[in-house]
């Protein structure tokens, strides 16, 4: 019961961060600022969702699997953000839609 309550609270909190990240993606004025919103807010959102799901895990293997997912998404997210930012820096005017 306590585990289920914690799961619901943490997953809902995580979803707030995903919503905020998406709001930032839509509202922020340029590519770089949008990347801020996506990487950082989604990282915390996913972290909270994963933390919530850990209370439903069947054993240590499941918990490690969830942590592995978070670490891989984190590494992919920050690398992708940097690559998009670098591409925008070198080819930004060419591809600008403003």
């Amino acid at each position: 019961m306590i585990a289920n309550t914690l799961t619901v609270i943490l997953v809902l909190a995580g979803l707030v961060f995903f919503a905020a990240g998406t709001a930032g993606l839509l509202r922020f004025p340029d590519v770089y600022s949008r990347l801020h919103a996506l990487t950082k807010a989604d990282n915390v959102g996913l972290g909270l969702v994963i933390l919530g799901l850990m209370f439903q895990a069947g054993g240590p293997a499941d918990i490690l699997k969830l942590i592995l997912i978070w670490v891989l998404v984190l590494a992919a997210g920050t690398t992708a953000a940097h690559m998009v930012a670098q591409r925008t820096w070198t080819h930004g005017e060419f591809e600008s839609d403003r």
Partner: peptide
């Protein structure tokens, strides 16, 4: 600090006046 980072950018994204100065 990454949690604070997420909190900070979420607050800015949801704030009605969009308080960013890139």
């Amino acid at each position: 600090s990454s949690f604070v980072g997420g909190l900070d950018v979420a607050r800015r994204a949801l704030h009605p006046r969009l308080p960013i100065e890139p």
